[in-house]
């Protein structure tokens, strides 16, 4: 699974990256985490609010720092489909 964290490096984006890392660790999932910080790259995901989290190229969360549980639920779902 490929997880991308979209954000221009603001504190909230760093928090989001931290949350996602924890969630992946706890759920023990094989996933790569990649931070997208370039604004032109971010816009290719067509989001209007950062931070955002994309799983396999699809934006799933945007405009807030998710909780670890939210990300775990998301990953569990993403793993099934």
């Amino acid at each position: 699974m490929k997880i991308e964290i979209l954000g221009t490096g603001c504190p909230k984006c760093k928090q989001t990256a931290e949350v996602v890392r924890k969630a992946v660790e706890q759920a023990d999932i094989d996933a790569t985490i990649h931070k997208v910080e370039d604004i032109q790259e971010i816009m290719k995901f067509k989001v209007m609010m950062t931070p955002a989290v994309a799983v396999d190229g699809q934006v799933r969360i945007s405009g807030k720092v998710p909780t670890v549980d939210e990300v775990k639920a998301l990953l569990a779902n993403g793993g099934r489909t």
Binding site: G7, T8, P11, I39, M43, V47, M48, M49
Partner: peptide, 14 residues
């Protein structure tokens, strides 16, 4: 509308 200055750029482009 919820807004945070860290989202100003993507919002502007959008």
């Amino acid at each position: 509308t919820p807004f945070c200055s860290c989202s100003a750029v993507p919002l502007f482009i959008g």
